[in-house]
Amino acid sequence: MSWKRILIPAAAIPIIALLAYGLTRDPNLVESPLPGRAAFDFVAPTLDGDTLSLSDLRGKVVVLNFWASWCIACIDEHANFTEAERRYADDDFRMLGVVYQDTPENARRWMQRMGGGWPSVIDASSRIAIDYGVYGVPETYFIDKNGRVAFKQIGPVSWMLLRQKVDSLLAQPTSTELKTGVSGAGALHSSGSQP
């Protein structure tokens, strides 16, 4: 009856295989309807006391980053944004932060300590976050020169991803280009969510 002895443990294989497959999926990832659509415009006060509207930045590639001082993953990605700001200083590129569910004082202090000269707006009653369907921080939206959302990243942005997205958006901001950006988003997403 030795085949039986092998068969019993072998029964485990399909179960393990199924669970292993399950690990490659992330059920919490809801496909965002935003890529390809016009980014919601907003006018909001910045941490420095100015007022800023997204539509003022039309014609530039905007990296819109939702963050908070209590968000640990935001610490990890911050250096990438600082680096991007330096690297693309002469291009049509702007970093823009949105402070998510945080006090302005804490956010200001955090920004001073972490460095980075770009503005961040205060999202008083989470209106902007709700418009963009933010699930948690950090989330980052890449907006092209025509003011359309090209790509959405849930979780911290890696330097590779940041460079790749910004370079392609700076190079060819046409509507056909946008389409490939959308279809490529899924693949990038799943690879990006596994550190």
Partner: peptide
């Protein structure tokens, strides 16, 4: 559901070990 990371693969590995070793022992002691 909490977030993932490496914890999922770790658990899966442990489940696999427990499942396979236990069943093998059952077969061996049949």
């Amino acid at each position: 559901a909490f977030t993932e990371g490496l914890i999922g693969p770790f658990f899966l590995g442990f489940i696999t070990v427990v499942l396979v070793v236990s069943l093998a022992l059952v077969a061996w002691r049949s």
